[in-house]
Design a protein around this nucleic acid. Structure first.
Lengths: 126, 126
DNA sequence: GCTTATCGATTACAGATGTAATAGTTTGTG
DNA sequence: CACAAACTATTACATCTGTAATCGATAAGC
């Protein structure tokens, strides 16, 4: 699968939230968040199809688009490559950077604690 | 500052590890890790200078290059934009994804716990 | 049925990127 | 001092990306 560009990702996000969707539905969903012309969105949809990240089926005149690439798969793959590229594969320094610059909220901490607890629960039999 | 491309980042990493450095030192540092031609590395150095991420001072025939953009600044900025783009700004889901796919090691957990402890220490006076 | 509005497909085009090659300039060497 | 070696600067070029416009097919209205 070819890389998804940033603009393409915005289109994909719409489909992750609601699919299948017609091109026009995607255009409308993006209308407030972006200033993209309808033609631009359709080009992006097309490129996503070419890249294999999105599929469609014909529904009369219009197409119904659906994501092939799942959000969780995308997130995991991008996270890994990002952390590899920017932090040499270590995740803690990323979180540390956020902590140091006051980008962590109470909620984030709570979630992380829960996560860690669960991890330790599952890995207690080491 | 214009965006740093992935290839440019590799060059920048070398300078973060050791600077100032001549172009040839950078080329050599990259020789094993990559298959880049010397000319390619020099182009990348040049682009980094144009982008303002790297500076140089003349040392006779050769230049001595140094990073202007600091690694921690780069990491923080990229992390924020990545997490915004891919996880709508929430960091815990990223870590959760890693946990779910067994990408977290004992050491990561230990570091995260320490981080959290420190955060709570500093934010105890809420 | 013919025309027009609407879709997707194709084409456009400038800037960024990956990956070098060539040109121009400075310097060390004979 | 002239020439060659070594640097950097400039140029090259294909692909990707952002951002559309135009083309061609088709369906819907009159």
């Amino acid at each position: 699968m070819k890389d998804i560009s940033q603009a393409e990702l915005e289109v994909l996000k719409v489909l992750w939230q609601h699919s299948p969707a017609t091109a026009n539905q995607v255009v409308e969903a993006l209308a407030d968040a972006s200033q993209w012309h309808e033609k631009t969105v359709k080009t992006l949809l097309n490129r996503l199809v070419t890249k294999g990240a999105v599929s469609f089926e014909k529904d009369g005149r219009a197409y119904l688009y659906s994501p092939v690439l799942q959000q969780s798969d995308y997130q995991l793959k991008e996270s890994q490559s990002f952390i590899q590229r920017v932090f040499s594969g270590r995740i803690a320094p990323l979180v540390a950077g956020f902590a140091q610059h006051d980008k962590l909220a109470e909620q984030d901490i709570a979630e992380l604690k829960q996560l860690i607890a669960r991890w330790e629960q599952e890995n207690k039999n080491d």
